[in-house]
Write a protein that binds this DNA or RNA. Structure first.
Lengths: 346, 346
DNA sequence: CCCCGGAATGTTATCGCTAACATTATGAGG
DNA sequence: CCTCATAATGTTAGCGATAACATTCCGGGG
């Protein structure tokens, strides 16, 4: 049955175009086009002749031509910060899956630096490729500037950033995650909780820090000085060495799992046991966190769902042609996952 | 100076096209086209008038039209397996950066399952978008089948798979990495080395297992039964529990860092110290591995370089229009990174 | 048996760009 | 100052699809 991917007469180099199919089926090109775009408008008998011809010639519509004629490409652009990181990579994956289910393709631009210029350039490159819309995975505070001067007619969805700007937004409620983490630690009897934060330039870092601070204040506890890291295990380790020297530290909320890992390492080296001497909570719930030593209590973020939500927002935005109004939001709730790195205060 | 992204008269909805630029600059559309494609063929004075007009109108060429006219899109397709994993994500990142440097864009399809059908579909979707070539990041053995019946005229580059097929190939020498890992363990005085492998359906898993086995044989040691995991820390933990019960086990080579992490956890729980009782080597050198407990000796893979190489191969392939011959190869050497999880045998 | 209205199909123009060929400008040499 | 090769620019004709309008087909009512 399968004639291989190059059906038709053996000699034909150029791949088949609509006209070829039309000729073989004995109809006009327009009818072929209709079979593709509104099949119900062509008589079943004709339709099947056309379909057969398509199969025979292994016809595939030329997208460039369709784009030129219709103005829409079926491609969505994604501008993302460092797709090597667990969060962005997972979000991207979620977007890709959702997109595929709706027959969209994803073109990506990964940025290793986020600012007004790089975001603008990334979007420009994608616009040049006629993407139908752009999803920006831009967890930096500075991303907001880059978003302001983007052309307003371009459908845009933002993931995890620029909460105060009027764009459709999908993200995880960072603040809530932090609140849950800190409440958990307080409920175990800890007097206060230290915080190992991410860089202040990151939206997520600030959300988590804000949740941490608010929860402590609400409970009437003093908030210790924040230690600022850069998300890496290395920075968690460095800062952890400082914490390990201070015997008053009994509970630490690290802004992500990698820093928590570094922290665990530093505590261990200093002879401080977890959770007996110090309790540690992370954030992200990377797949490895149950196997840290000890298994890490952390806040689970469903990145896949964020990706799906972002795509759904984009679909709305493209579909109804509205400008997205004042920015619909889809906020995903994070969950605390309790493992063995947290325990009662001495 | 900056008039914002919507220069020109305020009322003009539709974005500027070549004709508009031509008119403003007082030349023909063709000259504008030439300024874009072969600037040296237009007189400097004219050129700068045209460039000024472009800037003034915020002109950006319509790619679809260019594709339709030239047949090349400046977009490269990447079909990749689960881009959430560290390896594929890093490779993708490397490809993207190399591509951007050469003004190519990347369209991706991530597969959660690799077989003849899914690969074929992924490639078809990309072909439908007129990609100039496809890079397949397909670390499965089964990927080979999927590659066989791809259209021969489509420029194709394979990353880390199908070594026996005649496609341009970029990858890391898995076997060599394993050899270095095992030699290191043997040199520490261990009688033999156990192996925690990845699934047999993965090319990398087999390469590493083969290197492990060959090195043992070369040294005249008996190769213990292989324990097969699935790359996850979870599986490393499960299998590690079995190894931990066997007191004859003093050295283990895990096929990746995640499994090594699970293994470390299992050993610790069983009261076996690392490296005093058991030495462990991983593979990948994920950024967190220096902060495992203890810091992991592992094999570093330069995924970024693999991505760059893959792109370079693609450029050759597209550039000279050849069929890639019998498949040029770019093999990256992995490096052993010695940390604290390995020590002398008792 | 003719006419008519809607369904099915065909024609034409166009999307924005570039290849290929046609034309005009330029300036060195006679 | 004219000639002519060469550089600089312009014109025409698609690339492959779809939108919009034009035509043909068909069966039922008069």
């Amino acid at each position: 049955m399968d004639e291989g991917r190059n059906g038709g007469r053996p000699g034909d180099r150029r791949s088949a175009v609509m006209e070829d199919v039309a000729e073989l089926a004995g109809v006009s090109a327009m009818t072929v086009s209709r079979v593709l775009n509104s099949p119900e408008r062509v008589r079943p008998a004709t339709r099947s002749r056309v379909l057969a011809a398509m199969r025979e010639l292994d016809y595939r519509p030329n997208l460039a031509a369709r784009v030129l004629a219709t103005g829409r490409s079926g491609v969505l652009g994604v501008v993302s910060f460092d797709t090597t990181l667990y969060g962005p990579a997972s979000t991207l994956y979620g977007i890709e899956r959702a997109a595929r289910a709706h027959d969209y393709l994803i073109s990506i631009v990964s940025l290793s630096e986020l600012n007004r210029r790089t975001i603008g350039e990334g979007v420009d490159r994608l616009r040049g490729q006629n993407v139908d819309g752009v999803i920006i995975v831009a967890p930096h505070e500075s991303a907001a500037e880059g978003l302001r001067d983007l052309p307003p007619e371009l459908p845009l969805v933002v993931v995890g950033a620029a909460e105060h700007l009027p764009f459709p937004l999908a993200s995880v409620d960072q603040r809530l995650g932090a609140v849950r983490a800190v409440r958990h630690l307080l409920s175990l009897g800890h007097e206060t909780v230290w915080h190992l934060s991410g860089p202040a330039s990151w939206v997520d870092a600030n959300g988590r820090a804000a949740g941490w601070r608010a929860t402590l204040e609400e409970a009437g506890r003093a908030a210790p000085e924040v230690l600022v890291g850069d998300w890496s295990a290395r920075s968690g380790y460095r800062l952890g060495q400082r914490l390990a020297r201070d015997p008053s530290v009994t509970a630490v909320f690290a802004a992500n799992d990698a820093m928590a890992l570094g922290l665990l390492r530093a505590l261990r080296e200093a002879g401080r046991r977890v959770p007996e001497d110090v309790s540690v909570v992370g954030f992200d719930d990377v797949p490895e966190s149950p196997y840290f030593s000890p298994p890490l209590t952390t806040v689970h973020q469903n990145f896949g769902e964020v990706g799906t939500s972002a795509f759904a927002l984009m679909l709305d935005r493209i579909g109804d042609g509205s400008d997205g109004g004042s920015g619909p939001r889809r906020i995903v709730e994070p969950e605390l996952v309790v493992r063995e790195s947290t325990g009662a205060s001495r």
